[in-house]
Design a protein around this nucleic acid. Sequence first.
RNA 1: CGGGGCGUGGCGCAGUCUGGCAGCGCGCCUGCUUUGGGAGCAGGAAGCCGGAGGUUCAAAUCCUCUCGCCCCGACCA
Length: 588
Amino acid sequence: MRLSHHFGLTLREAPAGIEAESHRLLLRAGFIRQLGQGLYSYLPLAHRSITRIEDILREEMNRIGGQEMTMPVVHPAEIWRRSGRYDAVGPEMARFKDRKNSDLVLAMTHEEVVADLCRSEIRSHRQLPQLVYHIQTKFRDDPRPRAGLIRVREFTMKDSYTLDHDAGGLERQYRAHYEAYFRIFWRCGLPTIAVGSDVGMMGGSQAHEFMYLTPVGEDTLVLCDACGYSANRQIARFAKTPAEPEAPLPLERVDTPGARTIAELSAFLEIPAARTAKAVFLTAGLDGGAREELVVAIIRGDMDVNETKLANAVGASWLRPAEDEAILNAGATPGYASPIGLTTGTVVVDDSIPASPNLVAGANERDVHFRNVNAGRDYDPGLVTDIAVADDGHACAECGEPLRTSRGVEVGNIFQLGTRYGDAAGARFLDDEGAERPIWMGSYGIGSGRLLACVAEEHHDENGLVWPMSVSPYDVHLIPLTGRAPEDEAGAAAERLHDELQDAGLEVLLDDRDERAGVKFADADLIGIPLRVVISGRSLSRGGAEVRIRGEDASAIVPLESLAEALTARRTELLDRIEEAVRIPEFG
RNA sequence: CGGGGCGUGGCGCAGUCUGGCAGCGCGCCUGCUUUGGGAGCAGGAAGCCGGAGGUUCAAAUCCUCUCGCCCCGACCA
């Protein structure tokens, strides 16, 4: 490819207000352009890198027995109604009608389609297990796309689906994906960790997320350096500091004027926050969001409520902070609220509360609290479970050492779905005794654009991108420095080399523009192709072309006649180096 | 959905408060010079100032409505 006719320019300046380095560099280097909120065009450079990522995805999926196929982007609403997700997922799913007024949706994911295919294609236990996948467009109308390709609305995902006889088979394919995913990310040059995660709208029994750790990430992970425990904060457990055992004391009113928050309350009464109980009021969407109900979460004052845990505990599709009106209707007083004397609402109590006697809690009366509140004696605790947020410094639930938190981007996820989707679609197979059995399903996703952005985030320097060879748009960036004689020789040599290197199987970007050396070097640094070859009067007089690896200082003169061979060897060497870095952690 | 911000040649911005010829830098085109880390000079093209309505002799500027984008939060595979 000749840069003079390449579609997509490099920019000296990026648009203002960009906070992710991957976003800035992918824009500046001419990889992507934004069309609308969360909608991006992939220009030729990005398309090439994505193609290489997809090749890796295919190789690793095929290695574990995957069969590639393609499913539609537009689905009849019917299949989503059957699985129950038409109502459950809310406005994130784009819905529209066709000319016959039939309801259609844009695909967010493809469990429903696979389950529907199972009805027609899977009849016998002899056909199982199966692993199918495709690389397809998804649309999710996310309320807040951000950070370039890190979070978009339309994106391409490799999603695979496994079908098995039973839970054991599902577990085997799940583990195969676990290893394949690590191979994929390492081969793209991206270090990741796997963490336990919430199953969210997918449902099912077990899920892992593959996380690239970076401050630009929007998920918070809870990690234990001592024992290796790791989880998304949404589900992370921790060991709660136990309270001193005490005999329950009689309930006692105490005036606390103006003490509306836990901080004000503990300062006013001169007690630690752990000796208080706070009530958090939320409105929950139940029955797939069709019904709203007040949920009162009670937790010790030194901890915060984890909304994901709480939503799972009450079976809510969503939670939002309750309006003051709803709180007052339940007989509570904002700022001085407590579970004592509530008239409506589902009470959920964190499991730290029953073990903590004689707490200070609100009296549901302005400027008044109670001392010595005890769950069970003073109010019905309702549901008791873990609804607390894990944070830096909390003790690890596994080993007791302090936890730390880190930000990360979710580049992949794997779910054990169970029989839910097959059951909803009416898919069954006959086992070896002729009995009808449900199909066990798993689903597994990797967003290719987000993966590209994370690789860019990981591999860049102050001058631009530094692609790993495995996902670089080209192998070689060939720069002739031409001008007057005798350098014209360099231009001619570069033209010859361009064809010669391509014939040798290398993908070459030739900077044949009439630009000064500085401009060409700056663009080469920005685009970040691993092998840079400079051909000039100076290099020719030294015996050939100058070869340099992006991100490294050393350069070498290589004779033109052995350049194809030398560059092929360097390319192989760089790819081997990436392969050698592959590390697959123990499943857990 | 709540809070904040921004829409002015392709990109980055000034001008808006206080209404009066639409500007600057980069990029782009032509020519000459220059040629190993974002060149110099000369000439040139390119903007209904996001859109609609209003106020005014006069609107990028003031008012109303609206659309789009960015950031924070809520939310979210």
